[in-house]
Design a protein around this nucleic acid. Structure first.
Lengths: 217, 217
DNA sequence: TATATATCGATATTATAATACTGATATCCC
DNA sequence: GGGATATCAGTATTATAATATCGATATATA
């Protein structure tokens, strides 16, 4: 039996990866070739050991005492891990202003996301296009996803529509869903739902403010 | 010495709150007056004990065996906790398409967020308005925040500008920052930075896909 | 060339969050 | 009215993630 030797990348570590990548790119622009875990930890306000472990999880080569890690190689393996090199095709459902923002956001191509179709139910929107991508009628979701072998669906519809849309995406063979609607979606076990919960973030802000202002009083 | 008896609300619990609220509202619309922890757990695909503990953390009254919790009261205390009732004023910096999406998103008022000013450096944008809110020159950030006693700053500028903007907000007395730029921001200890890390979410999706498609092959 | 030191990887410890378990109790149903 | 049972609250356990510690080693410096 072949054991998978490489350490598993934890959810939390994955969340930190984009920050490492961004920081490593800055260092690379400054022509800095090696960097130590403590240095990165200082820059990103993290714990040194945590950084070293995160690196170990994605970068099979070793760091050198007194020197640290090779910036270019680290960057490569992280970008590889996050799939920045091979692009995943996605569709987006709900062609409102949030969809517009996502579709015109240039960064996402660099991150390996390519939106190939958009859907809406609003007759006024169907047939128009955003950033060169045609907006199609929502009843074509499953069909198109299946035909084009789409694996990612992005949901930016209102809460009450989200589950229906989700079901259509799943029926179309989508394997991962990026959900911007503030609802829990029920899906089969093998499907990943990544919730972009803006309301939850706001909850954090609000709670912090309450504490901060309350303590003051 | 007075002890604070109420259980502290953990970060993770706060994240779940908006989902509870959404679900409770659905139940309320259906004229359902009480609900049990196991029922909510089933609907949101959570653990029953977790739900009960989350409830206990925000709702000082008790649930009843065999019956559960009062939907309306639970909802009230959660909305109170998250500050949905008293609205926090905020400014947004970087008037691009993401800012547009946030400013036109109607839900946020309900969540107690009121955006009162927008800033940009682009001369073409300054003086125009989004959704009735004037776009001002970015060099006025600190001043306006201080004058209007703004406590929340939203950052939607490109990565390389984010730290500068952040410093201006902090200088203006802002206490909490909602950061959509994919960079780590350095701030004094008492300031909360809530990162809306879209790149990290994408990383999750991508990683899941790699696993799912890899296993298949 | 010898010594000091920054950093490494590995292991141990601690903190935080999730889940399982247990006895008590309000409601339901016969 | 008297079980049967769903649910509760509280406590115990387990899982996960973060941090501290320690011996080993590559580089720098005297």
């Amino acid at each position: 039996m072949i054991e998978n030797v490489r350490q598993v990348v934890t959810t939390q570590a994955l969340y930190r990866m984009p920050y490492y990548i961004q920081q490593l790119r800055v260092l690379q622009e400054q022509r800095i070739e090696t960097v130590s875990a403590p240095k990165i930890a200082e820059l990103l306000n993290l714990n040194e050991v945590q950084v070293r472990k995160d690196f170990a999880a994605v970068y099979s080569a070793k760091g050198k005492p007194k020197t640290g890690f090779n910036v270019a190689e680290l960057l490569d393996s992280m970008e590889e891990l996050l799939g920045y090199n091979n692009s995943d095709e996605a569709v987006i459902v709900g062609a409102g202003s949030l969809a517009h923002a996502i579709m015109t956001h240039e960064g996402f191509q660099d991150y390996g996301l390519k939106i190939v179709a958009a859907f809406d139910t609003d007759a006024d929107r169907i047939g128009t296009d955003i950033n060169g991508i045609k907006i199609l009628a929502a009843d074509k979701i499953s069909n198109l996803c299946r035909r084009m072998k789409i694996h990612i669906g992005i949901i930016t519809v209102p809460a009450y529509r989200a589950q229906v849309v989700c079901d259509q995406l799943v029926a179309g063979g989508v394997l991962a869903i990026w959900n911007f609607a503030p609802v829990h979606l029920s899906v089969p076990d093998h499907i990943l739902v990544q919730n972009e919960n803006l309301a939850a973030s706001l909850a954090m802000l609000s709670n912090h403010l309450k504490q901060a202002l309350g303590a003051e009083a």
